[in-house]
Every structure is written in structure tokens, then in C-alpha cells.
Design a protein around this nucleic acid. Structure first.
Lengths: 125, 125
DNA sequence: CTACTGTACTAGGAGTAATAATACAGTTAA
DNA sequence: TTAACTGTATTATTACTCCTAGTACAGTAG
């Protein structure tokens, strides 16, 4: 499915969250598609099931997946995500990053161009 | 100068980097202004000098300050920052965050509005 | 019932963050 | 030059988080 760097300073479960988030956002994992089970993915990646579960829990908190006891974990459909908490964090992050980018020399137009680029590649709903 | 959360999961030196970066970006700390010395700030915040130094080293790597042995650490003037390494990271971060924001339901216009908001508050050079 | 699923808990080892103490090197002013 | 400041580096120790391992409970589907 993908690879992890166990020697990285970044925790494995955080790497997992990022990678899975990318797969969901880029529509590699489709809406309501079932993710590998905690134990299954743990075996594939040769890491502990607890670590997988920690990543899944985080993804659920952030609104990217939903889990049903006994059934599995599934991709949360985009557009139906309603997570004001997470949106607030993202807005704050965006503001910080904009200020940072400008300080380092990027122009607003460069940033806007980057946005259009990403926007073109998404087109959900 | 500011406060830190020693109980946070986020390392103290990272909190320091963020806070100082904000002060620099928001022009609270002016160009070429001298930062508190490692020992002085350590005493003020009741934390170890090594932790301060780690934060300063990181800020220097990212291009926000420069340090002169025997003299002190100073704010790196905006506009004169030339850190392609750091810019690359910021661009990647922006792209990730844009995709994330869109997935969570933000429109491009909302994001663009946020950019204009930040842009208005900066106006360096 | 059986075999899957998610979820929770405890205990232990490994690695990083932070502290403490010391030292060296360069600047500045008396 | 000396004294007092600056950044920088090193080592040892403690505290905390990540990760693992093992076990257990709850819900689902055949």
C-alpha cells in the first residue's frame, strides 16, 4: 500500500495519518471504501496493530474516515464532512503559513497560483 | 515576552520557534533587532539555555535570524531572506493544506480571502 | 458458534526532549 | 589586558512519548 520510515523523527502513526489522508484526498481510496482492518494493515506493514489504531482514531477525529465496531473503517465522503473543529485548525494553519510564505519572499500571486493548481486536481462532488 | 506550555506534547523548543517566528513576521521584533541572549531568555522563561539555543539554531536554519558569536542573535530582514530549501518546504506544506482545506469543505474563494486578509496585515518592504 | 471487525488496557523497551554542569571562542568596554 | 558579556559544544541524567507485546471485550456476519 505504501512505505514508512521507522527511523524518522516523525512518529509512525503520524506518517500513517498523512499518507492515508493523501490517498483519501486524491481519491485513490473512494468514498465509503473499506480500509484494511487494523490487524491486516499491521501485518502488511510489519508494525503493531495499536499503532494503526492510533492513526485510524486520529483520522476519524479529523473527519476523514468513520469506523463501525465489528464492520471496519471506511472513507468519509468528501462534501459530507462537517468538522468545524478541524476547519478552525486548518484556517489557523493557513494564516500562519501564508504569513510565513510571504516573509520568505513568495508573492500573493505565486500562492494563489499554487491554490489554483491544487484546485484543478481535486474537483470532488 | 510570552508563555510556554511545558506540559504540551509539542516540544518546548518547537513552541519557541513558532512564537518567535510570529513576533518576527508580525514585525514586533524589527529587522536587525537583537534578540534576548540565550542565557537571558532562559532565565526569563525558567527553562534551560540549551533549549533556547536549539530554538535559535532552528530559526537560523529557517532563515528568520542570524547569530554572531560574541555579539548575539538578530532578526533577519524580510525580503533579504534567501532560503530556497525552506521555500520548498513551505510550498509543499501549502499544497497539502490546500487539498486538506478543500476536502473539509472550504471553497477556493474562502481560502483566497484568507490570503488577502493576511497579505493586508503584512506589507513588508 | 466461529471468525472476523474495532476498541481498550497494562507493562516494558527504545528513543527524544529537557535539564544540569562545564567548557571554549569571539566581542566589547573599562 | 581583564572582566563580563555573547554564541556554541559536549557529556550525563532524568522524564516523557512512541512503539511493541499480550490480552481482553464488544459488535458483525457467515
Amino acid at each position: 500500500m505504501f512505505e514508512l520510515d521507522v527511523r524518522s523523527r516523525k512518529p509512525i502513526y503520524e506518517q500513517l495519518v498523512e499518507k492515508l489522508k493523501q490517498l483519501i484526498i486524491n481519491d485513490v481510496l473512494k468514498e465509503d471504501e473499506k480500509l484494511p482492518s487494523v490487524r491486516e494493515l499491521a501485518q502488511q506493514l510489519t508494525i503493531n496493530p495499536n499503532t494503526i489504531q492510533k492513526a485510524y482514531r486520529e483520522l476519524e477525529t479529523q473527519g476523514y474516515i468513520y469506523s463501525l465496531k465489528g464492520k471496519g473503517s471506511f472513507v468519509h465522503p468528501s462534501g459530507k464532512v462537517d468538522n468545524e473543529e478541524e476547519l478552525k485548525k486548518v484556517r489557523e494553519e493557513l494564516k500562519k503559513l501564508f504569513a510565513e510564505a510571504i516573509y520568505l519572499g513568495m508573492t500573493s500571486e505565486e500562492i494563489a497560483a499554487l491554490l489554483r493548481e491544487v484546485e484543478g486536481g481535486q474537483q470532488d462532488d
